[in-house]
Each structure stands twice: as structure tokens, then as C-alpha cells.
Design a binder for these strands. Sequence first.
RNA 1: CGGAGCGUGGUGUAACGGCUAACAUUUCUGUUUUGGGAACAGAAGACUCCGGGUUCGAAUCCCGGCGCUCCGACCA
Length: 418
Amino acid sequence: MKQSHLFTKTRREAPKDEVSKNAQLLIRAGFIHKEMAGVYSFLPLGLRTLNKIVGIIREEINVIGGEEVYLASLQDKKNWVPTNRWDDAVVDNWFKTHLKNGTELGLGFTHEEPLTAIMKDHIRSFRDLPRAVYQFQTKFRNEERAKSGIMRAREFLMKDLYSFNVDQKVHINFYEQAKQAYVKIFERIGLGAKTYITFASGGSFAKYSHEFQTLTEAGEDTIYIHEGKKIAVNKEVLNDEVLKDLGISRSDLVEKKASEVGNIFSLGTKFSDALGLVFKDVDGINKPVIMGCYGIGPGRVMGTIAEVYSDEKGLIWPESVAPFIVHLIALSNKKAVEGVEDQVKKVADEIYAKFIKRGVEILYDDRDATAGEKFSDSDLIGIPTRYVVSEKTIANGEVEMKDRKTGKVEMVKISDFK
RNA sequence: CGGAGCGUGGUGUAACGGCUAACAUUUCUGUUUUGGGAACAGAAGACUCCGGGUUCGAAUCCCGGCGCUCCGACCA
């Protein structure tokens, strides 16, 4: 894509009402736009990165047998009353509204209830199991206080996967597969080294749930990490029993701030009992389906990456989620005059065409701007590899290649571009 | 939901109760320039969040509303 076709502008300063680093950088670089507290729109660059994250998650969830759906945001009260989650006294962050005829509606903050209701239409027998169904969907949560930029929003995208199994044993097996899929997802996204499988409260159907916590001061959670085992315990559940279960001692743990980028949770029969999701086993006996839920917030992941991978100049995207892989900058020929071909532009155009032909995602800064402005914008946007074509470089038949992360510079022969 | 702070051109800031609301950035024109947000000249852009009140006079003081940020609580 040519940068002259990108409608977003970068800005020198972040709006003063944004304090979190992720939102400041993402706004300055033109990735997102703040609509109001906790509500953000995604602009072209931001959407590209968000879609990269979504794509990685989708691939890995498909590997473990996930079937993708897209459920409604508007929620019917009838599915939520049986689980006692319609009442505002029980769930205090509903966005509720009503139809013109007065019927109450809610904007979904999660989807256990509606999906369980749907599965009732399709699961009759043990032959219909196991199932794993997921979606990427906007969740609405009327948080009392939005904070941390896009890391805790009132409207946000979430990947939520739900599993349906015949018994606890099969469920645990899938749960482990999902856990491994999550490990792979965060590795691919570039957060692997900083992300810990963290033991957290399991609710009424399992001793523990597992959170995926990425170390960052911007996180809201406090966890205790065990570096040797690469696991952690959420502060909420840290006690002697947990330490014993995990075979670790308190002295090996280090307290850290972290951001919960994903979690997996055993639901047991809570929802299947409440909504009547049963199947006939081999003996023809009705049994409740064993469920699990598995969430990842792509927006929060994006914010976490911005927090973890950035410097004073701007963002530094891991290649797997960068909006573009290559940023090509042309510093126009100063002697360019009427009737004389601009050699720098000519070479840059050719290199751009070659990258496009090879299918490389490239942003080409073809704007009529000064070198300093182009470099600053490039650092701010944070594309992994930058190529600079200038009079100086083409004099030697070369192009400069610079790594955004390491700052390492290399000269590449123009003839090497295929 | 408790506590604190803040609302001034698109953005960031300034202005004692008193002149045409200032500066930077931004945008536009032109000249000049091209390896780290260049320089010069000219221009554009604000009912100072909204509504009341005090005053000869309010961006400034008072009351109410709305919005934003931070700390804490909450986060099924």
C-alpha cells in the first residue's frame, strides 16, 4: 500500500486524556480512534494488526476442531433467567435496552447462554459429541471504570470458544488441547516469552482455571511467577494448598504485574443443567453435556503488545502481527527537475512492485515529505523492516535495510531484489 | 461506587476578574530544501464543554449538569 493512500495521519502528541502507553502510541500512529472512554474504533493500520491477531487465533482454534459461528449481540432475556445472570444485582455490567414494544434486551457480555440454547437444537446423542464452537464477536460490558486504553474497554472484540463433551475425562483432554493451542497462539503472536500459564480460581466445577498472563506494568493483575516451571499463580488464589498442588514453594515465586490476555475455564454442567442441554448416552440415558469456555481478547492482546514492544520512538510490532512487514521509504532526489527522471523514485517504485509481486505486505512511503518526517513516522508505526532508497544509496546500487527492533542496519544490493 | 484532579483553535499548552484570547504544532500558498519531525514569508483555524449566577466587566469567581483522567473497590 502506498502511504499517500492512507487516510490516517500521525501526530506528535497524544491527546492528554490518554495516559496509557498503548492508547497513546496507537492513537499517535493512527491505529485507533477513541470514541469515548473505553470505546475505540479501529483505523486501517489498527484493523490490519487486529486481523493478524484474529487470523492466528482462528488457525490454531481450527486445528483443535473449532467450528466458527457468529452469534447475535442482542440478547433475549429468556436464555439468561435460568442461569440467574439476567438480574442486574447478579451481573452488574449489562448494557440493557428494550424494543419499541417494551421487550427487554441485553447486549451480550459473553455467550454461554445463547450458544447453549442453540446447541440444544443440534445435540441429541453422544454421537453428536464432542463439539467445539467459537466466534469472534463484539462484547459489551458496562464497566464502572474503563481504563488502560484498549486493554479494558466497554466494547471489545473477543474470541470465545465453548466445548461440549460427554464426560469430565474427555473434557479435560480437550481442555489440555485448548491450553496447548493457547500456548502456540501467544508464541506466534510474539508474546510467548512473557506469557505465563497462571492458576486462578476454578469456580464450582474445577479446582482451577488457567489464565494466560503477559508480564507488563500496564496489567491489572498481580501474579506470582515460577520461572523454572514457567507457570504462575494469581494473587487471588495464592495459598498453601495451591503451592502444594503445584509442588512449588513460596520462596521460588516472584511477584509481577500482568495482563490477562486469555483464559480457559471448565464450566461443568452449570449451563447445560440450567438450560437443559442433555444427550442420550449409549444406554439411552439423558446426561448433561460437560462444557468449557476459552476466551482471548484480540484488542487487549494488541494493547498488550503495544505496551510490551515499544520504545520512546514508537511501536515495535512482532512480524506476525505487524500491519505491514516492510516499510519502504523513498527520499526524493533533490535535483529532480522538470524533464529529468527522479532516479530515487524510479528505483523505489521498482522495488515496491517487486515486493507486491512476491505478495509481501508493504507500506511504501511515497509522500512528498522530508526525510526526518518519514523516519519519525516509520519509527512510530513500527513496521519490522525498513528499506530506505535515497540518492546516497542508489549511488552504490544499494538500499538501506534497518531492523526496527534492533536498529541494525545493512546495505542491500538493488540487484538482489527479485 | 468512594476519593482526587481537569475541561481554552484538530493536537499540546498560556493568559492577575480588564486591550482584538497568546505560543507551539497542524493545515493551506509561495520560495527554498531533502538522511532524523528543515528554513523563511503569508494565510486558515476558538461563541474558552453546556446552562445558570455574581460583576461595570468572567476563560478566570460561585452553583448545577455533562465529559475526561488518575487512585481505590469491582471485573461473574
